[in-house]
């Protein structure tokens, strides 16, 4: 973990880290074609050259009410392009801050990160740019419903 390159982004006003190996590129989000009847955290699809990217609204994917028109957190209209299971996604975040290296292993903090964050976070990681929450890509892309299903199944 130490020395790994991380992409530092702001999501819902929090500093988060993604492994730079997962992030193919950072793009300016252009026109998003909405997908009717798709889960709310899928903002739509957008074109990157000849590729269609599924745009994930990270705030909603975490389970927050957010959205692009939300003025609580300013956005810079950039997105990180990631691939998972043969499909490419654009992660819509507040802003992309930096690329930096991890200073230690991801660790837990007393009291946890809160229900929304715990689902997608592997832990806190110290970086050159300060502490950030390390995100699990697959959990993020699974969306908030899976968590609810798991809870229901467990109950």
């Amino acid at each position: 973990m130490t020395g790994d390159l991380l992409v530092i982004a702001q999501i819902a006003g929090r500093r988060c880290a993604l492994s730079a190996l997962d992030v193919k590129s950072v793009i300016e989000i252009g026109t998003i074609t909405p997908i009717p009847r798709a889960p709310v955290w899928i903002a739509g699809i957008t074109a990157l050259r000849s590729q269609a990217l599924t745009v994930i609204d990270c705030r909603r994917a975490l389970g927050f009410g957010g959205g692009t028109d939300d003025t609580d957190w300013p956005t810079d209209h950039r997105a990180a392009v990631v691939a998972d299971g043969g499909h490419s996604y654009a992660l819509m975040v507040d802003s992309i801050e930096d690329i930096t290296t991890a200073a230690d292993e991801a660790g837990q903090v007393p009291g946890g990160f809160g229900p929304e964050w715990s689902r997608v976070a592997t832990g806190m990681v110290e970086t050159m740019a300060g502490p950030a929450l390390m995100l699990d890509l697959a959990a993020l892309l699974a969306g908030p419903e899976t968590a609810r299903h798991e809870i229901e199944a467990a109950a």
Binding site: I35, A38, P39, I42, I45, Q51, A52, T54, G85, G86, H87, Y89, L141, A142, G143
Partner: peptide
């Protein structure tokens, strides 16, 4: 035609 993400 290209495939879509599973969530969609």
């Amino acid at each position: 035609v290209k495939p879509l993400a599973p969530a969609v």
